[in-house]
Amino acid sequence: MVYQKYGKRIIDFVLSLIGLIILSPVILLLIFFIKMDSKGPVLFKQRRIGINKAEFYILKFRTMKIDTPKDTPTHLLENPDRYITRVGKFLRKTSLDEFPQIINILKGEMSIIGPRPALWNQYDLIKERDKYRANDVLPGLTGWAQINGRDELQIKVKSKLDGEYVTKMSFIFDVKVFFKTIFSVLRSDGVKEGNSQSKIQ
């Protein structure tokens, strides 16, 4: 309980601040390539559902063209490949597009580990998560569901895993999820574009 109430937030803030400083050269390089690759802003903002179902704007590096329909999961686009930029394909495959969420973590809108924040209009996912109290915690940069299937998971399975995280939340469990995420990203596990459970920008 102490970890959930105080320790988790302190660790989130300290690690995110250190990460922002260390990764700043990489972030600047990515900004340069994004600007050179296509027209539009570097950052992509999108309404998401946070703790206690409060809305916030998640930050990502823009991976899609500026004419892409807003608030639409990639798998619902008729031809997602036509919207994803060249640099965007690389960013999405490596999850480097998630770097700007360090700012969301510093602001206290997100945690490093937690259920991935749902889109504001993903009513079925939000409702299913209510059953497991998964909307009662800070959403995360990565989570238990992400290392157990990510884009391949059905909503009911994903929500159940998010609920499992809520019940098991602890420092040791967060460390486990963190390191499993690193291996998952290196293998690009569960990342799909243009399929039934594709990644949401």
Score class of each variant (00 low, 15 high):
11 I>Y: 09
123 Y>H: 10
149 G>R: 10
151 D>W: 08
45 K>G: 07
191 V>Q: 11
158 K>T: 06
161 L>I: 03
176 K>Q: 08
199 K>S: 08
147 I>C: 08
149 G>T: 10
163 G>E: 02
183 F>N: 14
81 D>V: 02
38 S>E: 12
18 I>P: 09
68 T>D: 07
91 L>F: 13
2 V>Q: 13
31 I>K: 13
157 V>M: 03
6 Y>W: 14
156 K>V: 07
164 E>W: 00
197 Q>C: 12
98 E>P: 01
10 I>P: 09
129 R>H: 11
113 I>F: 13
24 S>R: 09
132 Y>M: 03
12 D>V: 01
1 M>I: 13
184 S>N: 12
105 I>Y: 12
117 P>H: 11
135 N>S: 04
7 G>N: 10
138 L>E: 01
119 L>P: 04
2 V>D: 13
26 V>M: 08
175 V>T: 07
21 I>Y: 02
47 R>T: 07
71 D>Q: 15
157 V>A: 06
102 I>A: 03
62 R>Y: 00
4 Q>W: 01
61 F>Y: 04
51 I>A: 10
62 R>G: 11
57 Y>F: 11
40 G>K: 12
18 I>W: 05
13 F>E: 05
117 P>M: 07
174 D>H: 08
193 E>A: 07
69 P>A: 12
53 K>C: 15
191 V>C: 06
97 D>E: 10
83 Y>A: 14
2 V>C: 05
50 G>T: 05
68 T>V: 10
159 S>E: 05
68 T>E: 05
174 D>G: 01
97 D>C: 11
178 F>L: 14
76 L>C: 01
170 S>N: 13
72 T>E: 12
62 R>L: 03
150 R>C: 06
169 M>P: 02
201 Q>M: 12
28 L>N: 02
44 F>H: 08
199 K>F: 00
114 G>F: 09
110 M>E: 02
70 K>W: 02
136 D>W: 01
170 S>G: 04
192 K>Y: 08
113 I>Y: 14
183 F>P: 03
146 Q>D: 02
32 F>R: 03
131 K>W: 10
134 A>C: 09
172 I>H: 03
43 L>H: 07
50 G>W: 10
133 R>G: 02
102 I>T: 06
167 T>V: 14
67 D>V: 03
74 T>R: 07
134 A>W: 05
190 G>Q: 10
30 L>W: 04
175 V>K: 09
104 N>T: 11
162 D>V: 11
89 K>C: 00
155 I>D: 08
124 D>I: 03
70 K>T: 09
113 I>A: 11
60 K>E: 03
61 F>A: 08
76 L>D: 11
133 R>M: 07
25 P>K: 09
189 D>N: 15
13 F>Q: 06
120 W>M: 12
2 V>G: 00
29 L>T: 12
81 D>P: 02
146 Q>I: 02
73 P>S: 10
54 A>S: 07
53 K>D: 12
27 I>W: 01
99 F>I: 15
81 D>I: 06
8 K>P: 04
182 I>G: 08
40 G>T: 04
133 R>Q: 12
140 G>M: 09
184 S>A: 15
32 F>W: 13
82 R>T: 14
94 T>C: 09
52 N>C: 13
67 D>F: 14
33 F>I: 13
43 L>S: 00
86 R>F: 10
91 L>I: 04
200 I>Y: 01
165 Y>H: 10
124 D>T: 05
132 Y>E: 03
35 K>R: 14
49 I>R: 06
51 I>K: 15
86 R>P: 02
117 P>W: 07
